[in-house]
């Protein structure tokens, strides 16, 4: 297997992704490799295509053109474009984790049920799923809050529940869209630290969209988009720009 400059085999390999919405081009020939254990921040101004790229990499939306290969350890490589909607849904719930700005937690459920839900969808019996969910919540500092509903938790606590949900299935790639965007700076820093610990800290990959340079600076690598094109790709200490970006 090929290795990239990060020193790990790429878990995601996107090549020449194109996506347009009517007359607007959201992705214009984006190519990107993401390694296992790597944290990657996607930055750029509003409308630059950040979220579209995240959605394409996560198999939420298919690009109009281009290829996306998924190379998970111990599994045969997958061409995500060739998967049906149902298969991509299954892929997302089994192999990927998500932490979005709004949390997307189900308000009717308790914290432990929200986390357990992702396991139950994958066929884990309820009792076992609840036990694993409780462990994950306790590990993230939410002991005693397992039975609380979303309205009874603070913004930071809700994001920790979302992180617990994203990692409890053992997903090797976690996608985050402005995970600290709705939090104050102190809480945001705590949540980011937790997110990095739960992903790259455990050998998993983290792909994160952010506006915040201080958040991006915590990642191993930062890519910048402008008008759907990748204009820079910098790792800590190095920087590649324009057409050299891969």
């Amino acid at each position: 297997m090929l290795e990239n400059s990060f020193g790990h085999p790429p878990v995601l390999h996107a090549q020449n992704l194109y996506r347009s919405f009517g007359a607007t081009t959201a992705l214009n020939g984006v190519s990107l490799e993401i390694s296992l254990g790597e944290s990657l921040a996607i930055m750029g101004p509003s409308g630059s295509g950040k979220s579209t790229l995240l959605h394409a990499l996560a198999g939420i939306e298919l690009p109009d053109a281009g290829t996306l290969l998924l190379n998970l350890p111990g599994q045969p490589p997958l061409n995500v474009q060739e998967l049906s909607d149902r298969a991509r849904t299954k892929l997302r719930r089994g192999s990927f984790g998500f932490v979005f700005q709004s949390g997307l937690l189900i308000p009717e459920l308790t914290a432990e049920e929200n986390v357990a839900m992702s396991l139950m969808i994958n066929g884990v019996p309820r009792a076992a799923a609840i036990a694993q969910a409780d462990q994950a919540l306790i590990a993230l500092g939410l002991a005693g809050m397992e039975q609380r509903r979303m309205g009874q938790l603070s913004g930071g606590q809700m994001q920790r529940v979302a992180i617990a949900r994203a990692q409890v299935t053992g997903a090797m790639v976690v996608f985050a869209d402005e995970p600290t965007g709705a939090l104050d700076s102190a809480t945001g820093a705590e949540v980011l630290e937790t997110l990095l610990d739960c992903t790259v800290g455990q050998g998993k990959s983290l792909v994160m969209v952010t506006h915040d340079p201080s958040v991006a600076a915590q990642c191993d690598r930062v890519v910048k988009l402008h008008d759907g094109q990748l204009i820079s790709d910098s790792r800590r200490g190095t920087s590649v720009s324009g057409g050299d970006v891969r």
């Binding site: 959605h55 996560a58 939420i60 149902r86 849904t89 299954k90 892929l91 997302r92 719930r93 089994g94 990927f96 998500f98 979005f100 709004s102 997307l104 189900i106 839900m117 992702s118 969808i121």
Partner: peptide, 9 residues
């Protein structure tokens, strides 16, 4: 819509 993005059928 969000839950569908997360992988719920």
């Amino acid at each position: 819509s969000g839950l569908h993005r997360l992988g719920m059928d």
